[in-house]
Write a protein that binds this DNA or RNA. Sequence first.
DNA 1: CGCGTATTTGAATGAGGTCAAACTGAGTGG
DNA 2: CCACTCAGTTTGACCTCATTCAAATACGCG
Lengths: 253, 253
Amino acid sequence: MDAFFNRLEHYARLSAPARSRIENAVHQTRHYQPRTALIRQGDRLGRIFVLEQGWAIRKKELEDGRRQILNFLVPGDIFDLQALINSPADHGVETITPCQVRSFETAAFIDAAGTDFTILSSLWWATVQEEAILREQIVRVGRMTAIERIAHLILELQRRTRIAGLGHARGGAALPITRGQIADALGLSPVHVSRTITVMRRMGLIATDHVLEILDPESLVSVAGFDDHYLHLDASPLPADLFSRQKPMTAGL
Amino acid sequence: MDAFFNRLEHYARLSAPARSRIENAVHQTRHYQPRTALIRQGDRLGRIFVLEQGWAIRKKELEDGRRQILNFLVPGDIFDLQALINSPADHGVETITPCQVRSFETAAFIDAAGTDFTILSSLWWATVQEEAILREQIVRVGRMTAIERIAHLILELQRRTRIAGLGHARGGAALPITRGQIADALGLSPVHVSRTITVMRRMGLIATDHVLEILDPESLVSVAGFDDHYLHLDASPLPADLFSRQKPMTAGL
DNA sequence: CGCGTATTTGAATGAGGTCAAACTGAGTGG
DNA sequence: CCACTCAGTTTGACCTCATTCAAATACGCG
């Protein structure tokens, strides 16, 4: 449970009982090869999943094959809390590296969240953060140049892998993503991504010996106009009394 | 409370007590001129707001003035449930027409949601829908041509205004948005939006006598490749027993 | 009327796309 | 160990969709 606990504890310290509640909600753990569909568009989801190891993507595809990567999933990420609504998935999730995925019984998961405030609080933070990432993605794709988009995405992934407990302290995040994936995430062509990355390499911003690495974080931030505020890295626990006046959830039923 | 109730009841029928709980949570109602900032990036939010009348936008701005509209807000939309976390807003909200906005005490609002399952369920649906809209926005901006983006956005707004109880039964949604706003939403220049809309008008898809109106919904859908599934228009209530096994929320504190 | 804002149209420019070919590197099988 | 394959990357040449700049036009509104 390392990645998941690690993630939740980024937002709030979990008590021992809280941890065991979560552990008890686990349904199973599976391994997947790269390029495996974890959720297909149209699926009705009965479970909640957590990515424990590896990288995955959320994606949507158009009729004619055009593909848009909505977001990258890194260890500790949850998909999908919105499984609670019994509605077909409006997008797909697919592994891009070998992955370890844990699944939870929805009801048990909700029990755990509902009975422990720190869990609920952390889950809410995770949701807020994911939405913020989607919004920033819109800005990248809508209003940034190619080099800005790429630099910005690299920095976001570096921050996120740091939270996930991967990646090194400074610069050196190693991102296992291809030019084609970057292109599909940023609304560019693979060819242009390649060209732009070559430029960035020549500028000394990054290195690309097999995986992408950050060499000059400061300059990269400046190229991207990157402000990591939207990631809420300084997440503080919700005020502990936020729900305290609340009656039991079942009161209204 | 028309727009808000109307919206919530799109997802689940509200009981009379549920309605009055919501009504009691209202803090105040205010009117705003167009181009008024409702939330400024960096604000810490103490309230939850509902747009009762008029249109607004969520937006982010880059240092050099480039602007990205993340989403349009129509009557019945909530901003922001994420106010629960006491964190500075990572984006702004601004009126684009005269607006009526209702604000809620966060605690009272949570009380209402926590004590009534239908309210909670509807709020969750609204959150899921908003996230889906953000994802679709990424696809538009990342992978669609100018005419596809515009047609797609028009159709989304038409569907959403229909939920909001505005707009007419078929085609005729009247959208009070300018070329410049469309451009900032879709990552285009106002000039090109103007050109493209001219083309669409000549194709008989839309009319633009002061407000934008849909003339030929079917062709527009085909031009946009529009599949309204992501809007979850067929929202059904959450399974009523979803939370029923749950212990009181305070149990873990 | 006169001012500010939005829209339209034209002409020139440019960022990024497409097509195509060469190159790299990690398997994999002979 | 080498040949072969397959996926990813790089580079060049050309093209196109959308941007920019600029000027003209329309539209409230005081």
